[in-house]
Amino acid sequence: MKVAIVKYNSGNSCSVAFALERIGISALITSEIDEIKTADKIIFPGVGEASSAMKFLRDQKLDKVIVGLKQPVLGICLGMQLLCEKSEEGNTDCLGIFKQRVLKFSEENKVPQIGWNTISNLKSPILKNVKEMEYMYFVHGYYAEKSVDTIASTNYGLEYSSALQKDNFYGVQFHPEKSSDAGQKILENFITL
């Protein structure tokens, strides 16, 4: 199986690659369009800032490539947010797979949210054998609103989408690669979709 991790200007692509290595998958970290198009599974990771990440994707013409993919795609953290319609971070137009907006957390709570929080109302093959109220590791200052595509919710001052799915596109706000054994389970589920 060929698994491609989309490389862009900011990101923790090697953390994701290491997590895949731990489950026996050797992934390719690449921004080459042909490599991405021909992969069986694509992971779109991300740590960084929305507007500069989108600019990079547009400059490399990766934006249209990602939107056109038919094979399973998993956006992680910023990667998931970039798959949404629009982000309040840098007032950025994103890829528009998921129709909700990405908004900044109100500062009634500490922002960014950093640490372990629970996911609930789980519904997707990618969350198979993950228990309700399982802890996942989150690091983010912006959140995706809830919608029909929400497959897991988390509460941080309000309920938001901690995972999304529409057709072949999956997104998780938390970092499965850093969420201990439960996170590893989600990566395994994605790889075996």
Binding site: S10, V47, G48, E49, S52, P112, I114, V139, H140, G141
Partner: peptide, 8 residues
């Protein structure tokens, strides 16, 4: 913060 995001 600008290059990598405040979170790191």
């Amino acid at each position: 913060a600008k290059r990598y995001g405040s979170q790191c």
